[in-house]
């Protein structure tokens, strides 16, 4: 099933139709997108253009109504819930606008959680979590609760959590949407650094042109399709 492809993510003619009662809302309408391995891509577009849906489908959190989805060479279309969960756990790291940390757990426990799900021993995963926190420059805050951290710090903890399992793909849904310009700068630099140093494929959904500028390529969506794309850095 796993093939050596140059693409981290392939979406082919992907449709996603939400049904609420008798009404259907097409979120994606035959979207086709290829993300190369090691690429840093930004996705922009007006609200309702399907940015988040794209990210959820690429992250196997959601299934397309039709079309093909290939993640790291794995065709995920026919996979079971358990198999999809494994793909997420091994290959994908998520970063969200609202950080989505679990408040009752300390920073290091939050970061280590994906490894706990993977079945990694306590000592091993705490060590890995501390390394991930070091990578985002927060190894000093390991014992702190999310509520004791600033927004920027919380997002860095979330990035550490996304990275701790060494995923090949990092999907960020408006990661700077709740941050000021200074923290936006820090987060985007951090994502760029991860992309360059670890070779992680990064996809960022954003409204912020300054964020998009830092990426290799910009894809604009409209009505659930790719409207245009610009290569910024080759």
């Amino acid at each position: 099933m796993e093939t050596n492809s140059q693409y981290a993510i392939i979406l082919e003619d992907v449709w996603k139709v939400y049904r609420v009662g008798k009404t259907s809302y097409p979120a994606l309408q035959g979207l086709t997108l290829r993300v190369e391995r090691g690429e840093m891509l930004s996705v922009m577009g007006p609200s309702g253009s399907g940015k988040s849906t794209l990210l959820h489908i690429a992250g196997t959190l959601d299934r397309p109504t039709s079309g093909r989805v290939i993640i790291e060479g794995i065709d995920v279309s026919g996979l079971s819930d358990a198999e999809l969960s494994e793909v997420r756990n091994k290959h994908i790291g998520f970063v969200f606008q609202s950080f989505n940390l679990i408040n009752r757990l300390s920073a290091v426990e939050n970061v280590a959680l994906p490894l706990a799900v993977r079945g990694v021993s306590y000592e091993e995963r705490v060590e890995a979590a501390l390394n991930a926190l070091k990578l985002v420059g927060l190894d000093g805050a390991a014992g702190k609760r999310p509520t004791e951290l600033s927004g920027g710090e919380q997002q860095r903890v979330a990035i550490a959590r996304a990275l701790v399992g060494n995923p090949r793909i990092l999907l960020a849904d408006e990661p700077t949407g709740n941050l000021d310009s200074k923290n936006t700068e820090i987060i985007v630099s951090l994502l760029r650094e991860i992309n360059e140093r670890l070779g992680t494929t990064v996809v960022i959904v954003t409204h912020n042109p300054e964020v998009a500028e830092k990426c290799d390529r910009l894809v604009r969506l409209r009505d659930g399709r790719v409207e245009s794309e610009v290569v910024l850095h080759a």
Partner: peptide, 16 residues
């Protein structure tokens, strides 16, 4: 509910 979403996003299965 949101915590469940987080757990699923980091790879927890429905069964788990």
């Amino acid at each position: 509910t949101r915590e469940i979403g987080i757990l699923r996003s980091i790879g927890m299965t429905r069964r788990e």
